[in-house]
C-alpha cells in the first residue's frame, strides 16, 4: 500500500490535491482512500490530507501514521511541530518540500535521515496560493512512478470539472510542470514494510487514574491564554507598516484588526504583532495613508528574522 500525506494551509488546495492524486491512482486501477483532515475549517491554518492506494481492498483507516511520501506545500510549516508535518517519517519515507532551498539544507535543519527533495517555485502572488496544492499533486504523481502523464491530466479534468476552462488549463500547466521537474526522482517512493503481529511495539496502556472534577472537567482556569497560540503561522504574506508614511492616526489599523494584533506603543507607533497576525490584510485595506504594504513571508524572514516586542503578550 502507498501512504501519502499532504501538508499545507487552508486555502492552498490540499483537499483538492489529495483528491486528484486519489483519482489518478484510481484511474490506474488502484483501490483508493483519500480524505482531508481539518478541525473547524480556517483559511491559512495548517491542514493536511492523505491518500492511501493499494491493489487490494484497503482496511486501514484514519490519519496516516507511517507515511511513504510526505509533501509540504508550504515550507514555513516544515519545522512547526503543531502542524505535525514530520510525524512518522522514517528512513524509507520520501519528504518533498516546495522550497527554493536545497534538500541538504532542509535535511540538516530538520535532522532527518530520509530522502528529502525540494521543488523550486516562483513566488506566487497572494491571489494564487490556491495553486500550491496542484503543484504538489503533479510532483507526487511522478514520485510514485505509478501515474502516467495522461492519467494525471484526466484526474485533474475530472476533479476540476466544475471550474471553467482557464482554471483547469492553469492547473494542468502547474501540475505538469511539477510532474516534469520530478522526472529524475520517478518511482523513488517505496512501499513501507507492513507491521507484523510477531514483531511490534506494544502500546503502553495504562489504567486511567481517577481525578477530582476540579481537575478532570474541561475547564480552563486562565484568562486570555490563547495568546500562547502563534496564529502568525497561518500567514504566507505579511503586512508591513512604512513608518515614513504612517500618519500616527493611532487607532485605525489597530481598531479594525480582527485579531487585536496591532497595538500602538508609547511613542504612538502602531506595531504589528507578527506572532498573531494571520495575514488577513484588513489593515492594508483600511490604512488611510496607504502606509501598509504586503510582502511574502519568506522575504520578511530574511529582512527581519525575529520580532521581539509583542505588545499583545504583555497585557
Amino acid at each position: 500500500m502507498y501512504r501519502i500525506r499532504f501538508h499545507g494551509r487552508g486555502g492552498q488546495g490540499m483537499k483538492t490535491a489529495s483528491r486528484i492524486l486519489g483519482t489518478a491512482f484510481f484511474l490506474e486501477g488502484y483501490e483508493v482512500q483519500d480524505a482531508p483532515r481539518y478541525g473547524a475549517e480556517r483559511r491559512g491554518a495548517p491542514i493536511f490530507a492523505y491518500v492511501r492506494a493499494a491493489k487490494q481492498t484497503i482496511h486501514e483507516r484514519g490519519v496516516i501514521q507511517q507515511p511513504d511520501l510526505v509533501i509540504i506545500a508550504d515550507e514555513s510549516l516544515a519545522s512547526v511541530s503543531s502542524a505535525g508535518t514530520l510525524i512518522g517519517i522514517d528512513k524509507h519515507c520520501v519528504l518533498l518540500i516546495v522550497s527554493n532551498e536545497s534538500p541538504e539544507s532542509w535535511k540538516h535543519r530538520l535532522n532527518l535521515d530520509c530522502t528529502v527533495l525540494t521543488l523550486a517555485y516562483e513566488q506566487l502572488d497572494i491571489h494564487q496560493i490556491s495553486y500550491a496544492g496542484i503543484v504538489c499533486t503533479g510532483a507526487a504523481a511522478r514520485l510514485t512512478g505509478i501515474i502516467s502523464n495522461e492519467t494525471l491530466q484526466r484526474a485533474i479534468k475530472q476533479e476540476l470539472a466544475a471550474f471553467d476552462e482557464s482554471v483547469v488549463a492553469n492547473n494542468l500547466h502547474q501540475a505538469l510542470d511539477a510532474y516534469k521537474k520530478m522526472a529524475e526522482h520517478e518511482a523513488c517512493v517505496q512501499k513501507s514494510q507492513e507491521i507484523s503481529a510477531d514483531n511490534y511495539q506494544a502500546p503502553e496502556w495504562i489504567t486511567l487514574p481517577f481525578d477530582d472534577a476540579n481537575i478532570s472537567a474541561p475547564a480552563i482556569h486562565a484568562s486570555a491564554n490563547s495568546v500562547q497560540i502563534k496564529t502568525g503561522l497561518w500567514r504566507s504574506f505579511r503586512p508591513v507598516i512604512d513608518y515614513q508614511h504612517c500618519k500616527h492616526c493611532w487607532w485605525i489599523c489597530s481598531t479594525y484588526c480582527p485579531d487585536g494584533a496591532i497595538n500602538v506603543d508609547d511613542s504612538g507607533q502602531p506595531q504589528i504583532d507578527y506572532d498573531h497576525c494571520k495575514g488577513c490584510m484588513v489593515c492594508v485595506a483600511q490604512c488611510p495613508s496607504h502606509a501598509i504594504s504586503i510582502i511574502p513571508e519568506q522575504q520578511a524572514e530574511v529582512a527581519a528574522p525575529e520580532v521581539t516586542a509583542i505588545p499583545g503578550d504583555k497585557r
Binding site: 487514574p209 481525578d211 477530582d212 476540579n214 481537575i215 475547564a219 480552563i220 482556569h221 486562565a222 491564554n225 500562547q228
Partner: peptide, 14 residues
C-alpha cells in the same frame, strides 16, 4: 494541556 489550562494538578497520585 491541563497545565496550560492552569489546572492545579495537586492531589492526583503520580
Amino acid at each position: 494541556l491541563q497545565s496550560l489550562a492552569n489546572v492545579k494538578l495537586h492531589g492526583f497520585g503520580e
